[in-house]
Each structure stands twice: as C-alpha cells, then as structure tokens.
Amino acid sequence: MWADLFTGSVLVGLLSSGIRLATPYLYAAIGETFGQRSGVLNLGVDGIMLMGAFSGFYVVFLTGNLWLGLLLAIIVGAIMGLAMAFISVTLNAEQGISGIGVYLFGLGMSDLLFQKLVNNVETVRGFQPLHIPLLSDIPVIGEIFFQQNILVYGAYLMVPIAWFVINKTTFGLKMRAVGENPEAADTLGVSVAKVRYLTVTFGGIMSGIAGASLSIALLNVFQQNLTNGLGFIAIALVYFGGWRPGWVLIGSLLFSMVNSLQVWVQVIGIEIPSDIAVMMPYLLTIVVLVISAQRVRQPKALSKAYERMD
C-alpha cells in the first residue's frame, strides 16, 4: 500500500498540488511578515483575505475581467490594511484585539455582500494554467512547476522580492529598526507611524491578493467563509518562518505538501482513519513550531503600540 505513494504519477500530483495549495498562505504570510517586522501584529489577515476574495470574485462575476478583479482585491486589501494601521498605529489600540475585530468585520461583511449581491453559489472562469513554451513540456518537472496559473508564480516571486526589500534596502532597514526599537528609530528621524502604515497596508494588499488567488484562480467560486481560517495558519507560518521570507516559504510548502500527502494517502486507500490523516499537517506544524521557537527571537517591539514621549 505505502509503496503506491512512490509511483511517478502520485509524486507529480502530490508536488504540484502542494505548490498550488501553498499559494494563498505565501501571499498572506509574506505580507504579514512585513507588518510584524515593523512591530505590528495583524490578526485580521483572514478577514482581509475574505474581503479580497469576495471583491475579486464579484468583479469577475460581473465583468469577466480577471485583472480588474485582482485590482479591486488589491484596493480592498489596501483599505482594510489602512484601517488596521489607523486602529493600531494612530489610535494605539491593542493589536491583538483590533486584529480580531478586523477579522470579524471581514468575515461578516464579505458574507453580507455575498448574500446581498450574488445570493447563490456561482462559479467564474478564473486565471487558467499558463503554458510556458518549452518549460511546460518538460516531463515531470514541467507538470509540477510550469503548468500553474499566474497567481501561483506571483506568490513564489514575492519571496525573493520580500527578502531583498527587508534585508537590502533603506526602507527594510527602517522597518527592522522600527520593529526592534521604535524609540531609537524615532530619535534618528525615522517616522514610526509612516513605516508601520506602509507595512500594514502592504500586508493588507497581500492578504487581498491571497483571497483573490482562491476565488479567481484556484477555486473560482465564492462561499461564505471561503478561507476557512487559512489566514490564521498564515500568521502561524510567519512565526514558523522566524520572520524571514525564505523560511516562510519553506513552512508554507511543508504545510501544504503534508496536506496534499494526507489527501493522497486517503485517495489511494491506505488504511488510516481520516481523522488522523487530516491532523497530520497541523501536528507537524505544531511540532516544528515548538522546535523552531527557540531558534529565533521575534521583533522586540512586536505587538507593542508606540507612543511618543513628548
């Protein structure tokens, strides 16, 4: 039975499905990494994703224009991110609580809009798998890596970009400074508020895209609570990755691969109770999280509001 797992077609299916599944986690977790590196914990990711997912879906449902849908998801994500920044940076509200507020708002609002505007489960034609000349035709490798839709590629492209911005640019330096020691950064003339507004809004945009990657690229459908708590897993993956994009990528891939493995294990009829199988990705994540927790230190000012002493 177990040997059935190691046949070519199963491995190809497993890997390409893991790569696809990781997409929304990656967008959301990379975005959240920016916010957290600057000291803002945004627990509202899942709510922003839902709003992004619905708005992208609705535009495509009405117009059929995928890029317009993606654009609206980005705009809505940015607005939600701005709102989170306003609450946590300008109003200095407790970040954990306000994030939950943003989540609940997104959860309820996306459902309300869905009920009022669409009122039925509908499908749309989303982003189709791209055919890249030559690359897509390579046996095995082509099937795994080069027959995905453009939003999947975008997610993986974000990883080196995020690494570069965080580690190699002035803005990245400011962001890290604000996240470690906002008082010192402030004395050096870095505007803590401005940096945090930018990172949290960027996080919102990425969450919006994460939602759209579900509703108009991977699933092509919207339903109430479409994300099903995926945004919270993304936040866990940021911790898992130790606030470094490369490790966030590894975490997302690991979680998704194990998830697709447990699906395959059941499909090819290996006798494991389904309840045990579905626990596997979560168990693994917890175990790795416990081990990696000792490895890196979180940004010192994470989840602390910054109030200037005048």
Partner: peptide
C-alpha cells in the same frame, strides 16, 4: 477512492481532493 477532508467548509481542500482524485 474515498477521501474525507475533515471539514464541512474547507473549499480549498475539497478542490485539492478533487484534483487528487483526477490525478488518481
């Protein structure tokens, strides 16, 4: 081939399960 995804609401995993069945 039977696959229980462990949720009544996880649309993403249901979609992936269908992909898997197709692959099988």
């Amino acid at each position: 081939n039977v696959n229980y995804i462990g949720s009544f609401s996880d649309v993403a995993l249901a979609s992936e399960a269908a992909q898997t069945h197709a692959g099988a």
